[in-house]
């Protein structure tokens, strides 16, 4: 467990290296994953995290405490990553249109049970590849879906935190999350069919 924010902030402001090292080691892995969902290479993600920490070093004297320290750091990360992501031309336009499951999977309007499964989803027999299949599918998601799925499911942030961090509405957050999860599920299904 990390000390309370006021202790951490005091440590950073006074130049206590142990405090900084502790934060660096506690948060950098999550920050890398989040950064990686904005930019196209691991190296770029590492640069984003590095630039974020440099901005934290410079900016902590002015930290107001209106949010938690971690949220403040993450916001810097998101802004840094966004700028870089735009530079890399990776901000793909996204669409919320259409169902998340192939409509062919459901019975048509002329059927006795329209909108119900033609055939139930097959049970999965998972193997040692499962984690890699999931990891690959995450990488294939459109940027905004990947960012939301990374924050919610990979990093375990709450819906409220994600909305605040990305400045998106609750409804928008849920649509992106749902589409992303459904895509990953469909990839697993394809792989194990």
């Amino acid at each position: 467990m990390l000390p309370a924010d006021d202790v951490l902030v005091a440590g950073l402001r006074s130049g206590d290296e142990a405090t900084f090292a502790r934060l660096l080691d506690s948060w950098s892995a999550s920050m890398l994953r989040l950064a990686r969902s904005f930019v196209s290479t691991d190296a770029s993600a590492e640069d984003v995290v590095q630039d974020t920490w440099l901005a934290v070093i410079r900016g902590v004297a002015g930290f107001q405490g209106n949010s938690s320290l971690r949220t403040w750091v993450y916001r810097i990360l998101v802004n840094t990553a966004k700028k870089r992501g735009v530079r890399e031309q990776r901000t793909v336009p996204w669409s919320d249109a259409g169902p998340t499951v192939d409509p062919e999977r459901f019975r048509g309007p002329g059927d006795d049970y329209p909108g119900h499964w033609r055939d139930f989803p097959e049970p999965w027999v998972l193997d040692g590849e499962f984690r890699q299949v999931v990891g690959r599918a995450l990488g294939e998601l459109p940027t905004r879906q990947r960012i939301v799925v990374t924050l919610r499911d990979v990093e375990g942030h709450s819906a409220e935190e994600v909305c605040a961090l990305l400045e998106i509405s609750t409804a928008n957050q849920r649509v992106l999350l749902h589409r992303g999860r459904a895509f990953v599920r469909a990839r697993i299904e394809e792989y194990y069919r």
Binding site: A29, L32, R33, F130, R131, G135, D153, V154, R181
Partner: peptide, 8 residues
Amino acid sequence: ELGELPES
């Protein structure tokens, strides 16, 4: 499983 992805 998304929550179990390895850390970098």
